[in-house]
Computed example of a mutant assay.
Amino acid sequence: MALWKHLVQAASAITLAAAFTSVASAQETVNIGYTGPLSGGAALYGKNTLVGLEMAAKEINEAGGFEVGGKKYKFNIVALDDKYSPSEAAVNAKRLKSQNNTPMVFTPHSGGAFAIQAFNEQDNFILGAYTSVPNMTERGNKLTLRIPPSFAGYVQPFINVEMKAFGKKLAMAGGDHDYAKAWAQLFGPAWKQAGGEIVAENPMSYNKDTDFYSGVSRVLAANPDVLFVGGASEPTALVAKQARELGFKGGFVVMDQAKLDEMAAVVGGMDMLEGSVGVLPLIYDKRPGTEAFIAKFKKLYDRNPGTEASYHYSTLNAVSEAMKLAGTVSDPKAIHAKLSEAYGKLPPERNPARITSVDDRGGTNANIVVGMVKNGKVETIEAASLGQ
């Protein structure tokens, strides 16, 4: 009888200890939210952004987590599908905060980010917005992190490259969607301020059309030296191809939504993109930290990473450092205040996006490099060398 009583007490103690261990384990896990397109036409883009967070979390967790206030913590990425819908992104963000107590929620589209900005300060979580739209951080939201640098940083380097190589006559043939309009509103005046001339303007429906013959013919009739193009990679490539088939010999300014390597895959190589300037594809970035990231990514996923993955990988690493510096995993304001310092402390292998700091409005700064297609290959150009 005494032995039975002892066994029952021991079992109870083990059960109680397991319960406490389970609670302690839950307390040592930090949930990080993600809402993005994981189904539908933009699913590949959404998965390319999510994988950067998952890769960083996996590395941090397998290294034993990170220590804050004497406790070890690990990350758990909680991802929800919003099908690229701003309203769905807002609903998901609310759910991630209320059900998973996430101090930060990432979203890879400006529509979703703007929708979430309506309440993230009130609900007390950091919005990790993957968009380069400048006014994302000009609205006074104190808990927003704009992950990529503003696309404004590309404007002057692009102008310097193309104007020097091809001439001063520009035709505007970008998309007619909001993001392309924002680019055009900034790029056109800057081109003229640099001494150039805009000889034609004809925005096109990159998201709907597949035949760009009439639109491209219209702008080429003005005999431009340079074409401004841009939307998603596939239609942008088709616009460039149509221009070449119509005899255009000049250069292309490719806004950052399109990627030179993805465009080349559509048109069968870089030859048709000769003279194009755009964001440097990650696979051509030979800086040590970035090369190490590409190698690790290819080993894990058997494919090349995109820019989206590198920016999210860098940012979750910075979030872990910011939590250490702030001494908290649960106070978004304190964590946000330490993000700039955190990025600056990351070694190159944990910061392949090369983000250097965060400005006082929540926008990142980075060492921008651009890519130009020369002789069928992508050449890397430091933006600073162009007098940005």
Rank of each mutant, 00 (worst) to 15 (best):
R146Q: 15
V319Y: 05
E197M: 13
F212S: 10
L339D: 07
F20M: 11
M172E: 06
G278W: 01
I116Q: 05
L50M: 08
K181F: 10
N304P: 08
F119P: 06
K208W: 08
D359V: 07
P203I: 15
Q242K: 06
T131E: 14
E321T: 11
K94Y: 09
S87P: 12
P347F: 11
K241T: 01
L346I: 12
R303S: 12
A182K: 07
V369R: 10
K168A: 03
K168I: 00
A318S: 07
P347G: 05
N202E: 14
K164N: 08
S276R: 02
K164C: 00
N92Q: 02
D271C: 02
A264D: 00
T356N: 07
K169D: 06
K338R: 11
N101K: 10
K298G: 11
P305E: 03
D81N: 13
R218G: 12
A89D: 11
N48M: 06
L273S: 03
Y284E: 11
T21L: 15
G306Q: 03
A342N: 13
G251S: 06
G327M: 01
A322Y: 10
V161H: 03
A56I: 06
R361V: 07
G215F: 08
A63Q: 14
T315Y: 05
N223M: 00
L325S: 10
A10S: 15
V51S: 08
L238C: 09
A2R: 11
V369Q: 12
A180W: 03
V8I: 15
S310M: 12
Y154V: 07
A182V: 12
R354Q: 13
T131W: 12
F166N: 06
L220S: 09
K71M: 02
A24C: 13
N367F: 03
Y206K: 09
F248L: 08
E54S: 02
G196Q: 11
F114Y: 14
H109M: 11
T144W: 14
F106C: 12
N202Y: 09
K259E: 04
M136L: 15
F20I: 14
A93S: 10
N367T: 10
P203Q: 12
K58R: 05
K47E: 15
K168H: 00
A222F: 03
A115C: 04
M263G: 02
M55A: 07
G195T: 03
L227V: 01
R146V: 05
S87I: 10
N317Q: 08
E262L: 06
L300D: 12
A353E: 15
I116V: 10
T137A: 11
Q122H: 00
F106H: 15
Y130E: 15
A56T: 04
E88Y: 07
G250E: 03
